[in-house]
Amino acid sequence: MQTQDWLFVGIFIVLAPLFPLIALLIPRLIAPRKPNPIKLETYECGMETVGPAWVQFKVQYYIFALIFLVFDIEMVFLYPWAVSLNLLPFYAVVEGIIFVAILVAGLLYAWRNGALKWA
């Protein structure tokens, strides 16, 4: 049964991009195509663009992504624990709580240091 379900998911993943692809190909046949340099310019509310689109970003984006990565890995560890919880003895729950508590310490550290502040 499992194999068949994965087959369904696999075919779905292969077919899903085809539907939007077809929808994008139809305008190629029927939509007008009259490009000119002014039409193709980058839109900036009618102003002429100055400099490259590559603007400098704050380091905050990177830090949030790092914190997210840590929590993402934590969640992947916790999911098997959550699924098998009812088959496990009581101390397993305590272990899970310790696991989370250690990470909450990290969150608190980030909080205290102002790394969670968008400024």
């Binding site: 380091v59 990177y62 830090i63 790092l66 914190i67 840590v70 890995i73 934590e74 560890f77 272990e95 310790i98 696991f99 989370v100 250690i102 990470l103 310490a105 990290g106 969150l107 550290y109 980030a110 240091n113 102002g114 790394a115």
Partner: peptide, 21 residues
Amino acid sequence: PFELASVLLLAALIGAIVIAW
């Protein structure tokens, strides 16, 4: 290893904040 993974992640988090922030 399960609990140590948590400690490792904590170390990674603190290290990242110390270096990048």
